[in-house]
Design a protein around this nucleic acid. Structure first.
Lengths: 206, 206, 206, 206
DNA sequence: GATGAATGAGCGTTCATTCAT
DNA sequence: AATGAATGAACGCTCATTCAT
């Protein structure tokens, strides 16, 4: 009796839970994200969520995982499109990262803004995997150094400071803390430009 | 009945509430800051807090205000100590900002990491005042430009991107997201150095 | 404006909570004793209970303590009334113990029938105090031995077995497990008589 | 499709449910016995249990019944081994009863410690059957009386008081209420000895 | 014969807040 | 100026049970 349209209905609720959790998270904040509220929003009982997730933590972990995957996909694609131009590639990666944050504030918050004490025990192995998101930046830097355009002292440290700048940019924008008189695009452009500038081989070091 | 010793008693409890709230906030975290706990810690009833603050939100706003003031004091002092050296001053300001964040993590959170739509009604006028913290950075940049050491296109934008870098640095460190193998001090030093580097007049632009 | 009748109103609710908890406990059992049910029964909110007791455990502990005190009082009085007649005294103590159990099934259950795993952390010091209830039995036995009417090998063990018999008698009666055709009073009498018989100096040991 | 090996499959799952429930009961306690946990442990869905038992109560009743049978078997065997020695037999029966309780504590609880008004609807007919466990004690007493070693006034009452002593002994031990300084075995031995002593024909009554 | 999906009721507990005094 | 008493709402989570398939 079932039509082909029914096929995906099995995991459907799981999807809706994840999506709703994401939306509530960004709209109301971590503190106001409760199992009941998620359930109410999708018109199910709170109990039903436990059919798909062992606990609230497990649900959030799944959310983080999804976000990490999505970001990784975006960065990989960005990198793959510019195989031989590390500078351009690095710039594009910065843009992709910032865009991801601005377009997916829900994901961004649980991925990067929750303090570990708040949400416990996200498996360290997954955090490590998450950190792999940075590797694509590191590779661009190293290739750029080989080509003589970047000056990379300690790639790990440098990559992390780049990440910090991008993260700060996204965070301030998401928090609505940037002076309203500043043009958003200009702000992002300058931020990226300054980020790259900090990596480039300085004339004196040539 | 009141003697001169009583003079300060009027606002005394208010002071103690704020101090205790701050301590609890920093020591136990935002999640564990409750009216009851504050009251218990000072040996008053929870009800008493409402004599001095309309609500928990109001108390938090006062706390944010205090934090802003404290940060402003720190930054002002840092600036005052280096009246004629804008580069050195900017560097010191960055250091002061980062140190403030690292030493007052929960303070930092309510000041910079709470999203306005969640922490409602923090008076916009206070937000504006908060942004004044940035002015001291702007002044250093402008003086540096006058001295020919900085290249400042749009001071407002530039200041904001500096702030973004510092904020990203503090945030990642507080969130424990920086690779454990990276030396914390080295990370901060590189972050600051790169932040400054992005402001300096490049030879080509001379 | 308040009359003298109001004086005791302060601890009144606490009393009502304890009483209600006791009644619900015996009527519905430990598993069905919830803070909400207690609150509902007295027409207060569940939260109010926490004004008088730190936790469910604390409430139960208070109940146990009360029961222990009450039993101790009864036993002490029973003993004091028969200073020079250890046999008669022991018999009366048995009767008092059984009567206490039958008349206060609520107390009896939490005092003697809850397994420690179920209700955690009743302070060992209090359990020890509870065990003092047995001392009054031991003293009767020892005095009886001095008078040559009891034969007491190890007073501690003997006291405990007496206790076991009494406890078994009370438990079966409370659980309604004794054959309905058996006369309740006769049963108790035989139980006590047999309990005493087991302590008496046997002719062969004379 | 079914082979001869399938023959026992009909009641097979019912058996496994009962066995698993028993194991969980003994290992994890009555409080932790849930339909879900039983189902998980046997790898079936919780729903499946309802194919074999109307409710959790019904399952418990079946469990009680099994326990009764098991105890009855033990007692019968104990009795059968000592056909001509009522005293020794009675002693062995006491031992068997106590051992059963200590070795199957949670079994013991549902069999003897649940109050009927809480565990509703356990068929009275089964309770009666349960009481048959006592008959084997009664028979020993009666045979002992015929042989002149026991003095039995009312066998029903006497048997019940014996039972009370045994039940008290088991209950206190299971509840962990016996003074830790008392040797467990010694305690049991004395308890049994005193139990027997209360039945023996006293010289004065000869 | 067996299940997956779903739920309402309930648990102990914490919270910010109100109100009469 | 300060409090004790009280509460409704909410939290994450577990439970026995139902029902359509």
């Amino acid at each position: 009796m079932s039509t082909s349209a029914d096929t995906s209905e099995n995991g459907d609720l799981r999807r809706r839970i994840l999506d709703t959790a994401r939306h509530l998270l960004v709209k109301k904040g971590y503190q106001n994200l409760s199992m009941r509220k998620i359930a109410d929003a999708i018109g199910y009982s709170a109990t039903s969520i436990y059919l798909y997730f062992d606990s609230k933590d497990a649900l959030l972990h799944a959310l983080i995982h999804e976000g990490m995957m999505q970001l990784q996909d975006g960065l990989s694609e960005t990198a793959a499109d510019r195989p031989d131009a590390p500078v351009e590639r690095l710039q594009a990666l910065c843009r992709t990262f910032i865009d991801f944050g601005l377009e997916n504030p829900e994901y961004y918050e649980i991925m990067f803004q929750l303090r570990p004490e708040r949400m416990e025990r996200y498996p360290p192995e997954k955090y490590r995997q998450a950190r792999n998101n940075l590797d694509v930046f590191s590779r661009a830097l190293e290739e750029g150094e080989e080509q003589g355009v970047f000056e990379v002292d300690d790639p790990r440290v440098l990559t992390s400071t780049i990440w910090a700048s991008l993260h700060g940019t996204v965070s301030l924008l998401l928090a609505g803390r940037v002076d309203a008189r500043i043009d958003r695009e200009a702000f992002i452009d300058v931020a990226i430009q300054r980020t790259l500038q900090g990596c480039q081989r300085t004339p004196s070091s040539a």
